[in-house]
Write a protein that binds this DNA or RNA. Structure first.
Lengths: 188, 188
DNA sequence: TTGAATCATACAACAGAATGTTGGATGATT
DNA sequence: AATCATCCAACATTCTGTTGTATGATTCAA
């Protein structure tokens, strides 16, 4: 790599890293550009060479964390259950957990959850594309239901200090998906 | 009510309303105190008599939308399914939809979803308090799963212009809760 | 290969805007 | 009449976004 481009991308990354360490510690609205450049060791003006404002940095990070279609492996029978790529999702979450746990958590960005859902949705829909029996509109709701549940559960898992073992979590998710919530509860 | 308190609470409400109409139209970080007081017709300084900053207004609104324990009716057998107050939740959402749809949507506040879940959670847990068979830790995850799914689905519903009829939505949620996701999908 | 021209990076300094606070005028309450 | 609360004008401070410039890297013709 060219020395100049090396400097550029290094600077950009330094700013991103500084932003992220601040973002993990405080609400985004309290982060000033001065905070970021002080931490990264640059002049405040330099920030504007790379980003529009503080939120632009966040967006850049988010976009780099949305998997592209070809990154997400096609759902193979057996690897996932009945067209719902729960395992694929869990692996994706675990791979990026450092960022996902924050972005999908309480101090995170609700728009990121949407971006993520919208990236995964087409893959699921494609699975059912040639099944004339499926009601497209209802399918949308079922997908929304599942993805929301998974995201909520994973975020909860990462928030716990005393975590359920990973395989137990996977097993629970499988049962909830296949059998529903009611059957996982004792009769009243 | 005495005249002074009337004025006070009217002013506070005017500021809240002005904030809300701005919040519906733009991201909170772009809302300035000047915007709010201009819209409400007060001096900028007056704002600080009532709120600490812009985020304080949001928090005030959020807190007024979290149901207290006695507002949420105890779960009666038959009104809800097997201890999961899905109907209670749907009614709550529909009653406050004007605010919930925004706060739980893309431009909303992820912390609000948490507050809401945490308000409902104890009620569910109480249902199962005397059942020694239930695994408390797993129950937490099941609750998180259900509430996340419900919130996600309702937000999606309100986002759609071409909505599924309400009774069909309720029926779908019932089926998903009782039978799981898999059974709602055609075999691949 | 050299060195002159060009370009990009980072910075200092500026104007404009938003913030949060203080002290005072007006009008309601006691 | 005395007190108190509401609202406002004005101020110092901080943050923002932009512009002009110094420094150093790259390019290309001789």
């Amino acid at each position: 790599m060219n020395k100049r481009t090396a400097i550029t991308s290094q600077t950009k990354q330094n700013l991103i890293d500084a932003f992220w360490s601040l973002y993990c510690a405080m609400r985004i609205e309290k982060i000033t550009i001065k905070d970021i450049t002080n931490k990264a060791g640059y002049n405040r003006g330099t920030f504007y060479e790379y980003f529009k404002d503080v939120y632009d940095v966040l967006e850049h990070i988010e976009n780099s964390l949305i998997p592209s279609l070809d990154e997400l492996p096609p759902i193979t029978i057996g690897s996932d259950m009945c067209g719902m790529p729960t395992n694929t999702f869990l692996e994706l979450y675990e791979k990026n957990s450092k960022y996902y746990a924050v972005l999908l958590g309480d101090g995170g960005d609700p728009a990121f959850a949407s971006k993520l859902k919208n990236a995964i949705k087409p893959i699921i829909i494609q699975e059912f594309a040639n099944k004339p029996t499926v009601n497209q509109k209802e399918l949308d709701y079922v997908i929304e239901y599942t993805l929301s549940a998974m995201i909520g559960m994973m975020s909860y898992w990462y928030r716990q200090t005393d975590k359920l073992p990973s395989d137990q979590l996977h097993e629970l998710i499988r049962k909830l998906t296949e059998q529903g919530v009611t059957r996982q509860l004792p009769a009243l």
